[in-house]
Design a protein around this nucleic acid. Structure first.
Length: 637
RNA sequence: GCCGCCGUAGCUCAGGGGUAGAGCGCACCCUUGGUAAGGGUGAGGCCGACAGUUCAAUUCUGUCCGGCGGCACCA
């Protein structure tokens, strides 16, 4: 007897071993038809997996939350089958499901083109129509390897050889097509349906290593229904509309051009936004007892050699030579500079902690393929600071920093923050004992700060372990902005000391920390988060005074001047255009307030306020409008 | 950096071996209009750069530069 417990708590008994397929059939033919896979004691399994002992069973149908992953994985297989039928000689490698879809990496001499998509999609549809049985087979390692070698599937054969000894080698067969896979899979290709679409082509390295052959990756998306597929495609279009590169142009914030690849040309409006962010940060840092400094842009390579950067990051540093053939590097970071300031004079333990901030302009020669609008540039400005403190102060400083960071994120409208703890990477500076110490200190401090965090093993910085603070924007995308890194090694290398209570010299610890990360990137994130509709205090142009007829020009000028005097950023639009036209243009330009004035307003000394996206207008006396709106436009805190 | 695609007016894009087109924007004129595009006229282009093929190249080929999507990278 085998007793199967279903999610509703009911128990069904069977004479002997039973499959999920049989259980589903015994419940009802509809369910049997809708079933994709099952979960046996929580483990995803094929419908035909033989359950030999009592177990909890969950039948995964299309509506189940796990269904998409299975459908997408099967879709990848069906695509691979289609590709191998259509293009003999193409080798298969890996094809997992991913967020919103799947991909499959192929090895083939001639590249695929987007024109091939239609052909492949058509063949995939045929494979679904053929409704081929998908069966699981267990092979010995040697046989599986031989099979793939005979088929000329060198990548698969290599992979079989690399699998751990204790892993069961399972092959999935659908029609004449075979792939090495752990599964689970649908019982037949017909269950996939046709709500899929091939999306794009890309290169990818075999096993992610640039030294290995490059494969051709085909990305696709796959959904439960055509409706879901259409909704997804619509979502992509919407996401494109909030792309900061597009909005940057439409809102006249910044541009890029060939002569300065990876550097931003900030237009007046974009620079206003930048300055508002900077001013706000400066205010918050002042209040948090930071001191602000400025360190040199060009620094002799000797300092970078001592700090260890020259050895590790040489190829990412821009260098210049002076007339004595002395090599100077454009600073890629601010830490060594800050240590130089710390080293001036003698520091007492009484002076610690010293929180040294710099809106540090840095240059890094990022690989050309990494550049991406404001998100990844070669010239950027960090909201950087180094906290020089004693080991005893690490916990309290970390705590203070986390509070400051969360509070500033809230100012900018981000409430969801994920924290990741990254420990020692393979390539690193310093002894393991020092890393032990640094990791332990950071871990204690992080726990004391009381923030939930996840572990991110091996992802620490060159100098020390780090916390990463990841923002979640309106549409759920994640952006790593803030960081806190514990440096024990750098103060040693650059010989930073303070005089301790007993009169002896001691090494301070440095906490390298940033909240926005880089202003450029953060502004990119802000633009996308708000889809360009920035909150009033951030908007570069907060309001436009727009006239209805030229009779109101003089009054409009007076209104604009009054708002400007009240500290607001307003523009005047007295062009010979209809109000409809002006409203449309300023709405498209994402101006938060349109202050409409016509004859009536001029006579009554009022303004008609139209808010971005709103339909209604609100008529206020000029004085009231000034008070209300300038209060509303005040930055948080 | 690697793979694929792309580069035509300020923007979005069409075209195609015989030196170019649309819409929006811009300028000027008419219009003074009450909340998301009023009308007319006009000016804008070394068709990314450099080589090659050709009687002729913006169009075909190659190289380079830049952009886009991934991969790799991100102190």
């Amino acid at each position: 007897m085998v007793a199967i417990t279903l999610p509703d708590g009911s128990v069904r008994e069977y004479d002997g071993a039973v499959t999920g397929e049989q259980v589903a059939a015994s419940i009802g033919p509809g369910l049997a038809k809708a079933a994709l896979i099952v979960k046996v004691d929580g483990e995803p399994r094929d419908l035909r997996f033989l359950i030999e002992q009592d177990a909890a069973l969950e039948i995964v149908t299309r509506d189940h939350e796990d269904a998409l992953e299975v459908l997408r994985h099967d879709c990848a297989h069906i695509m691979a089958e289609a590709v191998q039928e259509l293009f003999p000689g193409t080798q298969i490698t890996f094809g997992p499901s991913i967020d919103d879809g799947f991909y499959y990496d192929f090895h083939r001499e001639t590249p695929f083109t987007p024109e091939d998509f239609e052909t492949i999609e058509k063949r995939m549809g045929e494979i679904v129509d053929r409704d081929e049985d998908i069966t699981r087979e267990v092979w010995t390692r040697a046989d599986a390897r031989r099979l793939f070698e005979e088929k000329g599937e060198t990548f698969k054969a290599e992979h079989v050889g690399n699998l751990p000894e204790d892993v069961e080698i399972s092959l999935y067969r659908q029609g004449d097509w075979v792939d090495l896979c752990t599964g689970p899979h649908l019982p037949s290709t017909g269950r996939l349906g046709k709500s899929f679409k091939l999306m794009k082509l890309a290169g990818a390295y075999w096993r992610g290593d640039p030294k290995n052959p490059q494969l051709q990756r085909v990305y696709g998306t796959c959904w439960r229904t055509n409706k879901e597929l259409r909704a997804y495609l619509h979502r992509l279009e919407e996401a494109e509309k909030r792309d900061h590169r597009r909005l940057g142009r439409e809102m006249d914030l910044f541009h890029f051009q060939e002569e300065a690849v990876g550097s931003v040309f900030w237009h007046p409006k974009g620079w206003t936004l930048y300055r508002v962010c900077e001013t706000h940060m400066r205010k918050r840092l002042d209040a948090a007892d930071y001191v602000e400094v400025r360190t040199p842009q060009l620094v002799d390579r000797g300092l970078w050699e001592r700090s260890g950067h020259w050895e590790k990051f040489r190829e990412h540093m821009f260098t210049v030579e002076d007339e004595h053939e002395r090599v100077l590097a454009l600073k890629p970071m601010n830490c060594p500079g800050h240590v130089q300031i710390f080293r001036q004079g003698i520091t007492s333990y009484r002076d610690l902690p010293i929180r040294m901030a710099e809106f540090g302009s840095c240059h890094r020669n990022e690989p050309s393929g990494a550049l991406h609008g404001l998100m990844r540039v070669r010239a950027f400005t960090q909201d950087d600071a180094h906290i020089f403190c004693t080991e005893d102060q690490i916990v309290s400083e970390t705590k203070k920093f986390c509070e400051l960071l969360l509070s500033i994120y809230r100012d900018f409208g981000f409430d969801e923050v994920e924290v990741k703890f990254s420990d020692r990477p393979e390539v690193r500076a310093g002894e393991d004992s020092v890393w032990d110490q640094a990791e332990e200190a950071l871990m204690t401090a992080t726990k004391a700060a009381g923030l939930p965090f996840t572990l991110n093993p091996g992802e620490g910085a060159f100098y020390g372990p780090k916390l990463e603070f990841v923002l979640k924007d309106t549409i759920g995308r994640q952006w790593q902005c803030g960081t806190l890194q514990v440096y024990f090694v750098l103060p040693e290398r650059l010989d930073a000391v303070y005089i301790a209570e007993g009169g002896e010299k001691r090494r301070p610890v440095m906490l390298h920390r940033a909240i926005l990360g880089s202003f450029e990137r953060f502004i990119g994130v802000l633009i996308e988060h708000y889809a360009g509709r920035l909150p009033l205090w951030l908007a570069p142009v907060q309001g436009v005074v727009a006239t209805i007829t030229s009779d109101a020009d003089d009054y409009a000028k007076e209104v604009a001047a009054a708002f400007k005097k009240a500290g607001m950023r307003v523009e005047l639009d007295i062009r010979n255009e209809k109000i409809n036209y002006k409203v449309r243009e300023h709405s498209v330009g994402k101006t938060p307030l349109i202050l409409v004035v016509g004859r009536q307003e001029a006579e009554n000394r009022t303004v008609a306020i139209r808010r971005l996206g709103g339909k209604a207008q609100e008529i206020l006396a000029l004085e009231d409008a000034l008070n209300t709106l300038s209060t509303e436009a005040t930055p948080p805190h």
